[in-house]
C-alpha cells in the first residue's frame, strides 16, 4: 500500500495516452497560466493547479495556513494573470456587513440615498483571516457567495461575473476568532494549505528578494476567456460509470460510519464539477476516476470529521479512507 504523503505523489493522470480532445491552444494557455503563477508562488505547482481547478469549476477557495506563506500573493497573482478585478478585505471582529457589502448614504445635494458598493463588488475578493469576522459579517459574505448577488434595502444587486472568493484563515491563533460553522464551510469548494516552500524554492525566493505582484502585471486572459473556460468545464463528459463512482463515494461518506456527517449534495455537485475541471486541465474532455481521486481530499477536508472523535482529518487520512470505495469495473 502506498503511504507516501499526497504531495510527493505524481499529481497527474494526464500522461494517459488518450487522444487529446482539448485544442492545443487551450493546453498552451493552461501551461502558460501555471508558469506565470509559478513565478510568483515558488514551488507550489500542485496548489496552483488546484486553485486553478477550483476557479474554473466556479467554486470559492479557502486557504488555511500560517501567516507569511504566500496566501495573498497567490490570490493576487491569480487575479492579475486572469485579468480580473481584485479587492481585498482584512477581516476584523469589529467589521460590519456594510463594510463588505456597501452602504447607502444620504446625499444632501440630490436629497436621496445613493449606494456606495462595498469591497464585494469585484471579481476576485480576497477575504483575509475570515474567521476573525463576527458571525453576522461572515454570513453576509457567505450569502453573497452562494447567491452571487447582494440584497440591500430591498434591492438586489448582481455581483460581477466571474466572482470568486478566496478566503484565508490562520489555523494557529484561535483567540478572538469565530470559526466558520459547517454550513458555511460547505460553500467553499476546496480547502487547501500552501505549506512551507521546499528547499530549492526557498533558495530561489531568498535570492530574488521575494516576489511581488506589480500592478502593471500583464494579464494572460480576460474575464471573457475565464467564462468560456468555465463553460468548457461544464461540457466535460461525466460518464455513467463515473457518476456511479461519485455516488458510491457520497454513499460511503454518509453510511460507512467513519465520518460524523456525510458529504452534502452540494459537495457532490462540487466534486463532479471539480473532477471535470481537473480533467480539462489535463487535456481530456471526459473525467476519469483519477480526477476524482486528486480533488476529493481537498473537497472533503473541511466537510468531514471522524465519527469517533469529531476531529478534522488530514489529506492523507482522507485519501486512505476513500480507498475503501472500489472503482466500478
Amino acid at each position: 500500500m502506498d503511504t507516501r504523503p499526497a504531495n510527493q505523489r505524481q499529481p497527474s493522470p494526464g500522461q494517459i495516452t488518450a487522444p487529446t480532445d482539448v485544442p492545443a491552444k487551450t493546453m498552451q494557455l493552461f501551461a502558460a497560466l501555471e508558469h506565470r503563477l509559478g513565478a510568483h508562488v515558488l514551488g507550489k505547482e500542485e496548489q496552483i493547479r488546484l486553485s486553478l481547478c477550483c476557479l474554473l469549476a466556479n467554486g470559492h477557495l479557502l486557504i488555511e495556513d500560517v501567516p507569511g506563506i504566500g496566501k495573498t500573493t497567490l490570490a493576487k497573482a491569480l487575479a492579475k494573470v486572469l485579468g480580473l478585478e481584485f479587492r481585498r478585505v482584512q477581516c476584523t471582529n469589529d467589521m460590519l456587513p456594510g463594510d463588505i457589502l456597501g452602504v447607502s448614504v444620504f446625499d444632501q445635494r440630490s436629497g436621496s440615498f445613493s449606494f456606495h458598493p462595498g469591497a464585494i463588488f469585484t471579481q476576485i475578493l480576497l477575504a483575509d483571516e475570515i474567521n476573525r469576522a463576527t458571525a453576522k459579517t461572515q454570513s453576509a459574505l457567505l450569502e453573497a457567495m452562494e447567491e452571487r448577488q447582494v440584497s440591500l434595502e430591498g434591492e438586489s444587486r448582481l455581483l460581477p461575473t466571474p466572482f470568486f472568493v478566496i478566503a484565508t484563515q490562520n489555523p494557529l491563533e484561535q483567540a478572538g476568532t469565530y470559526p466558520l460553522p459547517e454550513s458555511q464551510l460547505d460553500r467553499f469548494l476546496m480547502k487547501i494549505s500552501l505549506g512551507y516552500p521546499n528547499h530549492e524554492a526557498e533558495r530561489r525566493l531568498l535570492a530574488a528578494g521575494g516576489t511581488t505582484v506589480s500592478d502593471d502585471e500583464q494579464a494572460l486572459v480576460n474575464a471573457n476567456v475565464v467564462f468560456q473556460l468555465q463553460h468548457q468545464v461544464s461540457q466535460v463528459r461525466l460518464s455513467k460509470a463515473l457518476v456511479d463512482y461519485l455516488q458510491d463515494i457520497l454513499d460511503f461518506s454518509r453510511n460507512s460510519g467513519r465520518f460524523a456527517l456525510g458529504l452534502s449534495p452540494r459537495a457532490g455537485l462540487f466534486l463532479a464539477r471539480a473532477s471535470q475541471s481537473h480533467a480539462l486541465l489535463h487535456g481530456r474532455n471526459f473525467a476519469l476516476p483519477e480526477d476524482v481521486h486528486r480533488v476529493l481530499p481537498y473537497i472533503a477536508i473541511h466537510r468531514l470529521k471522524t465519527a469517533d472523535s469529531l476531529a478534522a482529518m488530514t489529506i492523507d487520512a482522507l485519501e486512505l479512507a476513500f480507498r475503501a470505495v472500489p472503482v466500478p469495473a
Binding site: 494517459i16 483519477e290 470505495v325 472503482v327
Partner: peptide, 25 residues
C-alpha cells in the same frame, strides 16, 4: 476484471480503488 486478474498473476496487483490510468502507471 479478467484483465486485472491477469495483471495480478503477472505481479501487478490491481487494487479496487485504482482507476485505469493509475493502473497503467
Amino acid at each position: 476484471r479478467v484483465f486485472r486478474e491477469k495483471l495480478g498473476r503477472a505481479g501487478v496487483v490491481a487494487h479496487d480503488y485504482q482507476g485505469p490510468a493509475d493502473l497503467l502507471e
